[in-house]
Design a protein around this nucleic acid. Structure first.
Lengths: 212, 212
DNA sequence: ATTCAGGCTTGACAAGTGTCAAGTTACTGG
DNA sequence: CCAGTAACTTGACACTTGTCAAGCCTGAAT
């Protein structure tokens, strides 16, 4: 019987299935987004599925319906986080017409990120540390790390380009530097150190010209 | 009555008390050391007092006897970890008589640390991330971070000195750079990336001369 | 030898955990 | 309009967790 199905019928069936898949996936992302709220608030260690559900419009059963288990949910969260994160500075990079413009645009975004999205970023650092213990996270985390490295590299090469130079260090070292500075500033900021943000900006402002 | 006690008797009482305190503290450290084993294996999120006890020679009750609660225990662990960690490169720094000697000594220790003490270091990154969520950890973590920054700075200034120069960047930036590189290398190493260690060494070898 | 306190063990408790099966609702194709 | 399936809720399960009270042991002071 199946082999008598017309090509058109098959196409319809396939289309229906992909539609269902898309809806399924959209829901997963909705749930992941809700989960990220609680994860950002409490951190990986203290977050339970029930807590996630209570802080959202969903019941805890839905999460089990859409995710095979807790790790699956959190992996989905991580992947979703990545998509939002990696393009943060791209507009600044493409629109800036001078080194100063790029510097100021970058610094402004950096400060805003540190202050407004502290919770999401501490979660990222938390999950990256978890990846050191939990193999299931490693693939996604390493991938995000690469994307972030590329993001920083885009900024650096553009900055260099605007001064007719080339970056003086490797992508890995540059990312390590900025990531380290940001991580330290984030911790200080969360500890209510009011100098955390200005100190970071000063440091980066001083560093940029020496790097390219 | 108390006011009739002689100075000598008072001294004896005080001595007895400090002795007891020392014994008490020594035991705390013993327990913290045992706890670090399990913490390094499982990470903060997955480690329970009972698991700690089972992987050690102690029963779970002892931990409650010596620590007011779980956070107290882990704070003690962190502080104890610090003491061991911060002096790691000091011997190399004081004995090296040339830039090359310092470079090679530093790189050797770096590689050894990454390979032999990966578990302790992933725990450090884990706990530092926890500090972003748990205020109780912050003070100790920030203090350790400062000590590590100072440790890196000692290496850099010595390296500069041996070339009759001065470090070209701030202590904070330098620490951020090395910490970022180490963290990334650690994750890759734990993910069985065999190039993690050599890549780190190459990067540091290239970086050192450009920094001072 | 007896007492007694500090050091430690044991077992219990309540709260919370991930998981899942059974049941309910909503919706859609025929 | 009806059947049947997808989407979701509910409640229960087995287990783990931090905490702590009650009791046990050992060794020293009296």
């Amino acid at each position: 019987m199946a082999r008598q199905a017309t090509g058109a019928a098959q196409r319809v069936a396939v289309a229906a299935e992909t539609l269902r898949d898309e809806k399924f996936n959209a829901r997963r992302i909705e749930l992941a987004e809700a989960a990220l709220e609680t994860l950002g608030e409490l951190g990986f260690a203290r977050t339970s599925l029930r807590e996630i559900a209570q802080n959202s419009a969903f019941t805890h059963g839905v999460f089990h319906y859409y995710f095979s288990d807790k790790l699956d949910l959190i992996c989905c969260c991580v992947r979703h986080y990545k998509a939002k994160c990696v393009t943060r500075y791209d507009e600044v990079v493409t629109t800036a017409r001078s080194r100063d413009e790029l510097t100021e645009g970058f610094l402004a975004k950096l400060a805003a990120t540190l202050q407004d999205e502290a919770r999401m970023h501490r979660l990222w650092y938390d999950l990256r540390s978890q990846a050191m213990f939990e193999p299931a996270f490693r693939k996604d985390v390493l991938e995000i790390d690469k994307s972030l490295e590329a993001m920083i590299w885009r900024i650096a090469t553009r900055y260099a380009e605007l001064g007719n130079r080339k970056p003086a260090s490797s992508p890995a070292a540059l990312y390590a530097l900025f990531d380290g500075l940001f991580q330290s500033a984030l911790l200080r900021h969360l500890a209510s150190d009011e100098k955390a943000v200005p100190d970071l900006l000063d440091e980066v402002r001083r560093l940029l010209p020496t790097i390219c």
